[in-house]
Amino acid sequence: MERVEAARDLVLAHVRALHSIDEAMRAAIPSLERLADVLGLARSRRISRSADIGTYSYKVHGAGCRFISDDGTEVDVDFTADGSEVFDLWRLRLYGLSLPETVDVTDEDLRSAVRSLRPLLTEVRPGWFRVTS
């Protein structure tokens, strides 16, 4: 049970980090209405595909973006067509492994943790989750 608790804490920390990134990016880029708008702005060349903004750096990729904080913590997220921020177990593990005090949990423990966090999290397609609005 301890491992699932650690995984649950990791998922909740990831959700908080994503919220902090959203706030920081919207404060730094006034035209940003939601975090997903980073993709459109980068694709239209109104902002760079990668840059440093405040305490974060970002790099747009495919359907998403990787954010790295000054302490090296990585939050990688994809965006759906409606602008929802989605992540999978791999991205949650990447986050845990990038923390200053590394948290290494199994996919099985993460899956149990995500299930325990319903209705906060919704599975949007097999293995992909978003924070319920």
Rank of each mutant, 00 (worst) to 15 (best):
R8G: 06
V38D: 01
T122Y: 06
V75Q: 04
R91Q: 14
L110M: 08
L35Y: 05
S98N: 07
L94N: 10
A24W: 01
L99C: 03
T122I: 12
R16T: 15
H61Y: 03
E85R: 14
L18V: 09
D82W: 00
T73P: 00
R46V: 13
W90A: 12
A113V: 09
H61K: 07
D78T: 07
E74T: 06
V15E: 04
A27C: 09
S20R: 14
G62W: 03
L121S: 09
F87Y: 09
R115N: 10
R111T: 12
A7M: 09
P119H: 12
E5L: 15
S112V: 08
G40F: 09
L10A: 05
D37S: 09
R46S: 15
L92S: 01
R49Q: 11
R26M: 14
D107L: 01
H61D: 04
A6P: 06
A51N: 03
H14D: 04
R34T: 08
F67M: 03
E85K: 14
G83M: 10
S44K: 11
E101A: 13
V11L: 00
L97H: 10
T80L: 11
V114F: 04
A28W: 00
L12M: 13
R43T: 09
F67G: 04
V60H: 02
V4R: 06
G83T: 11
T106A: 02
T106W: 05
P100G: 02
T102I: 13
R66Y: 01
F87G: 02
I47K: 03
V4Y: 05
L97N: 11
H19E: 13
L94F: 08
A51L: 07
G96C: 07
P119G: 11
S31P: 07
D109A: 15
S48L: 13
G72H: 00
P30C: 06
A63C: 08
S31Y: 06
V77I: 15
R46D: 13
L97R: 11
T122R: 12
H19T: 13
R49V: 14
L99Y: 04
R8Y: 00
D71F: 07
A13Q: 08
L89I: 15
L10G: 02
V105A: 11
A7K: 05
